[in-house]
Design a protein around this nucleic acid. Structure first.
Length: 739
RNA sequence: GGGCCCGUAGCCUAGCCAGGAUAGGGCGCCGGCCUUCGGAGCCGGAGGACCCGGGUUCAAAUCCCGGCGGGCCCGCCA
């Protein structure tokens, strides 16, 4: 209700100056600095909006407040009555409280929501400016999980919001098909296909390739860890031998207690009994850690650091073993095929590196192979995303010649600047520390951190992820003609995204740097589970949808309605989409989202909105026999007709609340856009729905005998329905007729 | 070692940038309400050191400083 707030603020200075004898400029600066502000009251009985005057009343005796306050109220009422929908002004405890005339506000809402002025106003924000929203962009090596889901839903919702605001929006998915991860998958697929094992019916390609990727990765990691553990163990034994000798030769054990000395010497003596050593290492670790708390010497520290290395690796090893066991049980044939081939991590790495460099050198056969796999996985992605109402305008491949060749141009352009040079070995490095000394823009990007350096070309002449990302960004701006770009990418990449901006700046693309926005969001954590694509442990969007659908179906069945089962499933389907999308935008993007699959059924933001929308439709259906979703124009015409004949009536608290909430409609949307917080839209919709539920529960609508009351209630119902409908469009909720 | 983000009832979350009155919702829990527009609802209730400690202010969940706890980033990985 910023209009209203401003309206009151406009009237305020003159009256304060007149009555309190304060300097006009002072009042103006107080308003500008936000010291003097109009805010909603905590209780509607006090009024609707209030201004705190305490800091102005500071020097004035308390018993004179009332007199002064009443005078202020009178004057303010006279000044705001006609313009700002103000009905009365009261002075309470140092606050000036304004009570509004909601009936008049209703008229304004009809113009906004029914006559569509709100959308005209909103369309003015974007004015057709071309915006590219890049989102999801998950590595095509395993199915989309809840983390990618958060990305997708945030990205899609934001894109929908931008469209509503009049931007010309294009959504794009950047396919990272040149990375190590895809190479690992390709390596695995090659083996699996060579044994002519193919995807069983009924398994989606993304899930299938996810298994191959994880198992290949697990086998490689296990081999690597085995070797590293072996190395660390012999390092430990050597160290123990040395320490043991020192202890013996010094005759005294120094700082080292006798039992620890025993263990150390024991490890050195049993050097060939590895299994034993691992057990002893563990107990030595615990003992030394305690010892270090009390006293420490260099010998203890070195031993501890080796032991700590060993410990992390052993822990990691067991996590992989656990993952291996789970996957091999479900996919024995894939597992067996891979196990016979992936024996040594070094060999595997060699194969993988070969695949990577072949791809990067645009070897047609390799590229084609990569493409085939990625396209398969992407088909799985598309199916998943479509099921929650998400589509893309385009998929851009990292391996495309546009990106690859542009990446090399980027390197040579950078070399022409003062901030990039060929370093030892032949790699090319960009020095942003130097750049930030010359350019405030770059320093401020990283401040208070150091800007740092990074490599854009390896010594073998190939480019890196960031190099290609720079190229892709330029492609978005220059070839695709974007004026603004939003990259919906996890926070972990915020450094990379700043480097991207910095490089654009260095290359002279100042406007582009300014118009590149990192839409950052935090990670998703699963309760009681650590997700890892590399270990094949994840909670997929597909699963999430099914879980939600099942819990909804269960509830529907309990109701024992006479609807047929097919209809029930259709309803459950749609609600599951709304619920799933809702959970994923429910939390501020800057905060970690913790999700508990066990409680998936308890999350009902989607249902709440759907329910209110369905109820409102039901009321209109009963009243006029009109189906809103089929015939919204006729509903609008009817309501315009009705609005004309409406007579002024006092509104109830519940009605006022809805009216006020509806009046916030466009300010919520623009706030959500500016702050990049789609969660605000959901919050708004849910609160509106809850307010509406309370309203129709308490007051009869169709059966109300008093015509003017009935008309207002019908009007509020339609207005709410229109607002919810818009909000559901933005959030991508399917629109139900009945449930 | 350096940098960024987060910390609000049993759980989740809004408010923090622009300080203001009784910290707003939801889940779960307890107790009520089905002959009136569809009960996936409504009404009532219990449950809070707004992480801790200082500071600024008439006024601090909000601003500043210092801690603590959690997450993330600092690769010739992506």
């Amino acid at each position: 209700m910023s209009e209203l707030v401003n309206c009151i603020l406009d009237a305020l200075p003159e009256i304060l100056v007149k009555i309190m004898k304060i300097d006009k400029e002072l009042v103006k600066s107080l308003i500008e600095s936000g010291k003097l502000r109009v805010a909603p009251t905590p209780d509607p009985r006090l009024g609707d909006y209030g201004v705190s005057l305490h800091f102005l009343l500071k020097g004035i005796e308390r018993d004179k407040w009332v007199e002064l306050g009443n005078e202020l109220s009178r004057e303010l009422y006279a000044a705001t009555r006609d313009k700002c929908w103000v009905e009365r002004v009261d002075f309470v405890n140092g606050y000036l409280n304004f009570t509004l005339n909601y009936f008049n506000m209703l008229g304004k809402l009809v113009d906004l929501l029914v006559k569509g002025e709100v959308s005209k106003e909103l369309m003015n924000v974007g004015r057709g400016i071309k915006v590219i929203v890049e989102h999801t962009s998950a590595n095509p090596v395993h199915p989309l999980h809840i983390g990618s889901g958060r990305n997708s839903v945030i990205g899609d919702t934001y894109a929908r919001l931008l469209r509503k605001l009049g931007f010309s929006v294009e959504t794009r998915f950047y396919v990272n098909d040149l990375g190590r991860q895809v190479a690992i998958l390709a390596y695995g697929v090659k083996i699996v296909e060579s044994k002519s094992i193919s995807r069983p019916e009924g398994i989606k390609p993304d899930h299938w390739y996810g298994v191959i990727y994880a198992l290949t990765n697990i086998l490689i990691e296990l081999s690597r860890l085995r070797e590293e553990i072996k190395g660390k163990l012999s390092e430990l034994v050597d160290l123990c031998e040395k320490t043991c000798n020192n202890i013996l030769s010094e005759e005294a054990t120094g700082n080292i207690p006798r039992d620890i000395a025993f263990t150390i010497c024991g490890i050195s003596l049993k050097r060939n009994l590895k299994l034993e050593t691992l057990k002893q290492a563990k107990s030595l670790y615990i003992k030394l850690k305690q010892l270090k708390k009390m006293s420490s010497n260099s010998e203890v520290s070195t031993l501890l650091s080796v032991l700590e290395d060993l410990r992390t690796r052993v822990k990691e090893y067991y996590e992989y073993v656990k993952a291996e066991r789970a996957l091999s049980a479900n996919f024995p044939e894939v597992y067996n095929a891979l196990r016979t081939e992936v024996r040594n991590h070094l060999e595997a790495e060699k194969e993988i590196s070969k695949l990577m460099s072949q791809a990067e050198k645009e070897d047609p056969e390799t590229l084609q192979f990569f493409r085939r796999i990625c396209e398969d996985v992407l088909n799985g992605f598309k199916q998943t995303l479509e099921s929650i109402g998400i589509n893309f305008n385009a998929f851009d491949f990292e391996s495309s010649s546009e990106v690859l060749s542009e990446a090399h141009n980027v390197v040579s352009d950078l070399l022409k600047t003062n901030y990039a040079k060929v370093i030892e070995g032949g790699a090319v490095e960009v020095d942003l520390n130097a750049a930030s000394r010359d350019h405030d823009y770059i320093r401020n990007l990283f401040h208070p951190d150091q800007a740092g350096r990074f490599v854009v070309r390896r010594r073998d002449g190939t480019t890196l992820y960031i190099t290609r990302d720079i190229a892709y960004t330029l492609y978005k701006f220059r070839k695709l003609g974007a004026e603004k770009v939003y990259n919906v990418i996890a926070v972990e990449q915020s450094r990379e995204q700043r480097q991207l901006k910095a490089v654009l700046y260095i290359l002279g693309y100042l406007k582009e740097a300014e118009n590149l926005h990192h839409f950052s969001y935090e990670m998703v954590h699963l309760k009681g589970m650590r997700m890892s694509g590399r270990r094949g442990v994840y909670y997929t969007i597909d699963e999430m949808l099914i879980d939600n659908k099942l819990s909804i179906l269960k509830k529907l069945m309990e109701k024992e309605k006479t609807q047929n089962i097919e209809e029930l499933i259709q309803v459950a389907d749609k609600i599951a989409i709304a619920n799933t999308r809702a959970v994923l935008i429910s939390v501020d993007p800057g905060k970690v989202l913790v999700f508990d699959p066990e409680k998936a059924g308890e999350i009902e933001y989607g249902v709440i909105v759907e329910y209110a929308f369905v109820r409102a439709q039901g009321i209109i259906r009963n009243l006029w026999g009109l189906e809103f979703l089929d015939n919204s124009t006729e509903v609008c015409n009817k309501i315009l007709e009705l609005a004309k004949s409406i007579r002024e009536t006092e509104l109830s608290v519940e009605e006022k609340k809805i009216v006020e909430s509806l009046a916030m409609f466009n300010s919520v949307l623009s706030k959500s856009y500016i702050e990049m917080k789609p969660n605000k839209i959901l919050e708004y919709a849910v609160n509106l729905a809850l307010d509406f539920n309370r309203f129709y529960e308490k007051y009869p609508i169709i059966s109300e005998r008093d015509e003017s009351k009935r008309n207002i209630r019908v009007l509020i119902t339609v207005l709410t329905m229109l607002a919810l409908s818009e909000l559901m469009d933005i959030m991508g909720f399917p629109k139900l007729r009945r449930m």
